[in-house]
Measured scan of single mutants.
Amino acid sequence: TIDEIIKALEQAVKDNKPIQVGNYTVTSADEAEKLAKKLKKEY
């Protein structure tokens, strides 16, 4: 679900690790936030 994706992003940001979500690779908190907002609009 979208919530699980967002939790995974938040965890990756805390661990400061890049995370791959679908076609996106998120490497920073800023990118994670942008991706989360984008995904919320889509779903």
Rank of each mutant, 00 (worst) to 15 (best):
S28G: 14
L39K: 00
S28K: 00
T25S: 11
D30C: 10
L9R: 00
D15V: 08
I19P: 02
Q20I: 11
A8R: 07
Y24W: 09
K38F: 14
A29G: 12
E10R: 06
T27Q: 12
Y24V: 11
N16M: 09
A12M: 15
I6Q: 01
K14L: 13
A32G: 03
I5L: 10
K7C: 05
K17C: 03
K41E: 15
A32H: 00
K14C: 13
L9M: 05
A8I: 13
I2G: 03
K37N: 15
K38Y: 14
A32D: 00
Y43E: 09
T27E: 12
I5N: 00
T1S: 14
A29T: 07
G22Q: 04
L35S: 00
K7N: 04
E42T: 06
G22K: 00
T27A: 11
K38L: 13
A36K: 04
V26K: 00
I19K: 03
K37H: 14
L39H: 02
K7F: 09
K38Q: 13
S28L: 03
G22F: 09
Q11M: 09
K34G: 05
N16L: 07
E31V: 03
T25H: 14
Y43T: 08
A12Q: 03
K40N: 05
E33W: 06
T27P: 05
I19F: 08
Q20F: 06
I6A: 01
A29R: 05
L9P: 00
E31A: 04
L35H: 01
Y43D: 05
K38A: 11
E33I: 14
T27C: 15
T27G: 09
K37D: 15
D30R: 09
A8F: 10
V13A: 14
E4N: 09
A12Y: 15
E4R: 05
N23Y: 08
D15H: 06
Y24T: 05
A32R: 00
Y43G: 07
T25D: 05
G22M: 07
K14D: 03
K38M: 10
A32Y: 03
I6L: 14
T25P: 06
D30Y: 11
V26N: 01
V26Q: 02
E10P: 00
T1I: 08
E10L: 12
V13F: 08
A29I: 09
V26G: 02
V13G: 07
E4V: 06
D15P: 02
N16T: 04
A36F: 10
Y43W: 09
I5S: 01
E42H: 10
Q20C: 15
D15Y: 10
K37E: 15
A12H: 06
T27D: 13
T25C: 15
N16D: 06
V21E: 01
Q11A: 09
N23A: 11
E10W: 13
P18W: 05
G22R: 00
L35V: 05
T1W: 15
L9S: 00
A12D: 00
D30L: 12
E4L: 10
Q20A: 10
K7G: 05
E31G: 02
E4C: 13
I6T: 01
L9I: 09
T1M: 12
A8G: 05
V13N: 05
Q20G: 03
P18N: 04
A36W: 13
Y24P: 01
T25V: 12
N16V: 03
D15M: 08
Q11G: 06
K41L: 15
Y43K: 08
N23R: 07
E42Q: 10
N23G: 15
A32W: 03
D30F: 11
D3K: 13
A36E: 02
N16Q: 12
T1R: 08
A8P: 01
K41Q: 15
D3R: 08
